[in-house]
Structure formats: C-alpha cells, structure tokens
Amino acid sequence: MDKAKNKKKNLTPEGQFRLSLDNCSKTKDLSTAISLYESAISEPSIIRLSNNHFNSFLYICSNSFSDPSTKNDAIQFGFRVFEHMGSCNITPNEATVTAVARLAAATDDGDRAFELAKGVGNCGKLRTYGPALFCFCKMGEADKAYQVEEHMRSLGLQLEEAELAGLLKVSVEKEREEKVYQYLHKLRMSIRSVSDTTAEIIQSWFGGEMATKVGLSNWDMGQVKETILQNGGGWHGLGWLGKGKWLAQRSQIAPDGRCLTCGEQLVCVDIDRAETERFAESVASLAMEREVHSNFKEFQDWLEKHSDYDAVVDAANVGLFQQNFAEGGFSIAQSSLLLL
C-alpha cells in the first residue's frame, strides 16, 4: 500500500495527468475531464496533449451524451476538443472520427457524421459509419441511409443485424416495398436467426396495409421454380408475388424440420449461383497459387469445352480412400471399379 502511494507521489505531472484522465474514462466523469482539459491548455509547457489524450477526451464525451443531464456539455466540449486537435495539426485516426461522428449524430447531423466517416477512407470500420446510418434511419431520411449502406458495401464492410434492422425499419415506415424485400433477404442470408426487436419490425410490415397492396397478381410458376432451383432451393428473388392480407406469426420448428404452425417441411438450402461462382473462383485461385507448376488452368479450359459432363471423378482421392493403414496405399482397383 505504501509502495503504491509512493509511486503516485513520484509521478511526473504528465504521468499524473494521464492517470487522472484514465480514471475519468473508467468512471465516465465528464466534469472532471473538462477540468483536466482546462488545466492542460492553461499550462501547455507542462502538459503536452497527444493524440491519445484527445481520443480519451472524445471517448468520455461520446459516452456522456446519452445522459440528458450531460448531453449538451458533452457535445459542446467534444467539438471543442476536436477543433483544438486540428489546430495542433494532429491527424485524427479512426477512433477519433468514430467518436466525433457519434457527437454529430447526437445533434441529428447525419450529413456531418457521414462526411467524417468517409474521410477515413478504406480504414473505416462498421462502427465508423454506424452513427450516420442510424441517424438517417432515426430521422426517416431513407435515401440518405441507403447511400451510407451503398458506400459501406463498396468498402467491403459487412452489415450486422442492428444496421440491417435500422434500414428495414425506415423502409417499412416509408413504405419502400422494394427495399423491405431487399433487406428481408439480406437478413435471411447473413443473420438468419433474428432478435425479438427485428422480428417485431418484420411483423409490423406484414401486418400493415401497404403489404396487402404490393405484389404481382399473375406470375409464371415455371420461372419461379427454375429461379428457386438456381438459387439453391431457398428463394426466388423475383419480388412480391400475390396480393392480399398476410398472416405473420411466431412459430417453433420440430426436431425433424417441420413448422409446428403451418405444418410445412423445411428443406436444406444449397448455395446460390453467385455464391457457387465465388466459391469456384476462390478454389481455382488457391489451387494456382499453391501449385507453381499446376495445370489447373488447362483443366478449367478442358471442362469448359466438355461442359456436357455431369460429374468429374477425382481418381487420386478415390484411390486413397480408406487406405490410411500400415499396408495401405493408392488403390488402382478402387478407381477402376468406380469408373466402371
């Protein structure tokens, strides 16, 4: 205990400042953080503020605006810190931008939050764009929310349930049926099992009046079946089919894959055509990368010319099947028997 006290006593002013700031971050103490900041800028020769210091102040601000009693102070102080950071010619990093974007979103300024996030470039993360996306969704600015999502997708950022649910909700509220359809299937593909909150958004669409108006009255059932088959048996992707009132309710699935509400049997869904092509491209790329002298490209060209074949047998693997024992080895008989 005495050693700890002596250690604190022997800290330099900068060390004591860092320790106090860390404590403010842990306790989310905005008022003490503001006092520390004021003392630092009043004695610049003693305390030299760094990128880490500024980020700590901004972190405290972004965690304080959720409290109505500290919201205004947190926002004003946060922007003041950010402007000071710029005057010191300190380049903001992704953590800096994320914190300031949250402050902008707290003032319902989604445009500024989006511009800040775009300034990070390819270093941006899901959390960097989240403030702008959620702000636009909350404000009902659907088109701007779609722009954020499109930009995120161009950077290869994968949206999670919270972001998809926000986009789905604003699409439902604005009665954008084509977007509702799109985000429902994005949830299906990337999330599959949604939370209760997201389920309520889905039910609100199918229980609303707009859902009864959209959809085709006539469609080609043959085309639907063919498209479902091409998509791995999961969905057709042709939009809303049929008009009228929907019945959307919660259900349980039996161990044998049967829906306990409608009685329909669930089926296994294969990957769709686009996923199949991406998988094939990645396998080919990996094969040619690992095998310097590989003739895999020639094999691909051969397959293109003989596309009438339904299957290709890997004789090497067939010949080695179940041969992992002491006397085992490549079995020509196994390969020959299969080919016959």
Results as ranks from 00 to 15, higher is better:
151 H>R: 07
88 C>P: 02
309 Y>F: 15
52 N>F: 07
113 A>C: 07
182 Q>P: 01
134 F>R: 07
115 E>Y: 10
88 C>D: 11
273 R>C: 09
181 Y>D: 09
314 D>H: 11
74 A>R: 00
150 E>N: 11
192 R>S: 13
27 T>Y: 10
111 D>E: 14
322 Q>I: 08
205 W>T: 07
304 E>S: 10
83 E>R: 13
4 A>C: 03
231 N>Q: 10
191 I>A: 03
190 S>T: 15
114 F>H: 02
282 S>D: 13
279 F>M: 09
43 E>Y: 11
39 S>C: 07
257 G>C: 00
331 S>W: 03
78 G>D: 03
182 Q>Y: 15
231 N>S: 07
198 T>C: 11
279 F>H: 08
89 N>S: 14
51 N>A: 12
91 T>P: 02
229 L>G: 08
101 A>Q: 01
123 C>Y: 15
272 D>P: 06
275 E>T: 10
59 Y>P: 04
174 K>Q: 09
270 D>H: 11
175 E>D: 07
90 I>C: 04
333 A>Y: 13
24 C>F: 02
151 H>P: 05
9 K>G: 02
112 R>T: 15
265 Q>E: 11
259 C>D: 14
92 P>T: 04
302 W>Y: 08
92 P>H: 03
231 N>P: 06
277 E>C: 07
48 R>W: 04
165 A>L: 01
193 S>G: 05
276 T>F: 02
31 S>F: 14
108 D>M: 07
42 S>C: 09
105 A>Q: 03
186 K>D: 14
284 A>Q: 01
140 G>V: 06
203 Q>M: 14
319 G>P: 03
149 E>F: 14
45 S>I: 09
212 T>M: 13
339 L>D: 03
92 P>M: 01
212 T>F: 08
16 Q>N: 13
100 V>W: 03
144 K>P: 00
82 F>N: 04
336 S>D: 06
85 M>Y: 07
180 V>C: 00
210 M>Q: 14
263 G>R: 08
21 L>Y: 03
280 A>R: 06
237 G>N: 04
267 V>Y: 06
287 A>G: 04
305 K>T: 12
163 E>N: 05
314 D>Q: 06
318 V>I: 15
278 R>V: 05
59 Y>T: 10
304 E>R: 10
231 N>Y: 06
189 M>C: 07
155 L>R: 05
150 E>C: 06
154 S>H: 02
271 I>Q: 12
113 A>I: 07
338 L>S: 01
292 V>A: 15
128 T>N: 10
192 R>H: 14
218 N>V: 15
167 L>H: 01
38 E>L: 09
174 K>M: 06
34 I>F: 03
161 E>Y: 08
1 M>Y: 08
10 N>R: 15
220 D>F: 05
174 K>S: 08
54 F>C: 04
117 A>K: 01
156 G>A: 04
2 D>Q: 02
24 C>N: 02
52 N>K: 14
173 E>V: 05
200 E>S: 10
241 L>M: 07
188 R>T: 05
183 Y>R: 04
54 F>G: 06
321 F>A: 13
148 V>I: 08
38 E>T: 10
85 M>A: 09
228 I>R: 11
